[in-house]
Design a protein around this nucleic acid. Structure first.
Lengths: 221, 221
DNA sequence: TTACTATTATGCGTATTCTGATTGTTGAAG
DNA sequence: CTTCAACAATCAGAATACGCATAATAGTAA
């Protein structure tokens, strides 16, 4: 699971994240609501672990801001185990609630429950190559968690490449599959679109996912 | 909601049931595991409220017996709010947990959550996406509580989209499912109706529920 | 009729796609 | 090592396609 931990007490957040790591999950930590909001919009998480009392934007407020958007399920974490508090959290849109102090086993169990529930609903077919995920149904691509907006042609191109991961796909094959017919051999549409695709996917990254096989074609991964 | 209350302490169960009644729900009471099991097999409930410690068959045992069968979601109720206990309950197959003493408001909230969740999965008479609720029987739609009046076509369109929440539905699919004929490539009925639908659902809102996937189709949520 | 809905037609703004020129790279021949 | 040709990458502007809104028309039920 990819988990976002929003918690200002560093000792707590580090304890949780290390425990989660040993359980095989990956975490990101932020210590205030503002950064949390930013990260939620940028990256893809499976679950959010949210402390109620955090700087800048309070946990409940944060939930309010997320309310109308599609976001991962939220588990509220709070020192205050008063029922009134719990109600407030759930009403605000949290998916579950856990009061401190808590047992790590229970936390893990609840996180997994939230994860399974959404996975079940979302179960779509996708292609995964390295840290890139291509969601065929939603026409969506993410690279290391970040969403990448592609145009139709770019997506098609990527899709043709992704059908043969690792293998070299010739230029003529790409042209035929992505454009549908044999193109004027002296066009460079392919080059242009591949360039754009590369910018969006590999832009700045040091381990590019698109490889050029000179005078033959391209390959993924 | 039709709720089964399994609780041996009569004062507690009566308090809950009267409260639930005034909230507009119907309850049945049993005070032991054996009767509970029998009733669950005979009648249809939306949620089961299960005390952990009950005569004849213990709450956890009961969950074990139900494990392989299709049954309503279970909320465990227990005097023992130790985390180890909570874990045991969830592991045994409960859908949620609430420790005594508890606030009635929270109980109700949690029951409703369980109810909605399963309703959604069971694809019964309403679909919920974000803050929009589509009532299939009554042909009614509400967005963040407000009722939205839709025409027949608009509703059909929305319904086709809502059948695949989050996923991209292609234009041709929408045309075929909502209009029934094969797509005359130079019609824009779809665009017009979608525009109207969008106005009614998203009008002015900064959180649109209908997403455009350019040159492919549309998606909800 | 009067409302209301469904469809067709039209135009505008913008995102996307393509073209052609330019610049950058690569690898083999001299 | 240098040079050169073939290939690849990039850029900017032109051309196009697409989505969306608005208005006009046609159909339907109260």
């Amino acid at each position: 699971m990819r988990i976002l931990i929003v918690e200002d007490d560093a000792s707590v957040s580090h304890w949780i994240s290390s425990k989660l790591h040993t359980s095989g999950h990956s975490c990101k930590l932020v210590d205030n609501g503002e950064d949390a909001l930013k990260l939620i919009k940028e990256e893809v998480f499976d679950v959010i672990l949210l402390d109620r009392v955090i700087p800048k934007i309070d946990g409940i407020q944060l939930l309010g801001l997320l309310a109308n958007e599609s976001h991962p399920p939220v588990l509220i974490l709070s020192a205050n185990d008063q029922t009134s508090d719990r109600i407030e959290g759930l009403r605000a849109g949290a998916d579950d609630y856990l009061g401190k102090p808590f047992d790590f086993a229970e936390l893990l169990l609840r996180l997994e429950r939230l994860y399974c529930r959404t996975k079940q609903v979302a179960s779509s077919n996708f292609i995964k190559i390295k840290d890139m995920i291509i969601n065929l149904e939603r026409h969506e691509v993410t690279r290391s968690g970040h969403r990448v907006d592609l145009t139709n042609k770019e997506f098609k191109l990527l899709y043709v490449l992704a059908e043969h991961p690792g293998q070299t796909v010739t230029r003529s094959m790409l042209l035929e599959k992505a454009w549908g017919y044999h193109f004027d051999p002296q066009t460079n549409v392919l080059d242009v679109h591949l360039s754009k695709l590369r910018n969006k996917l590999d832009g700045g990254s040091k381990n590019p996912i698109i490889r050029t096989i000179r005078s033959v074609g391209y390959a993924l991964g």
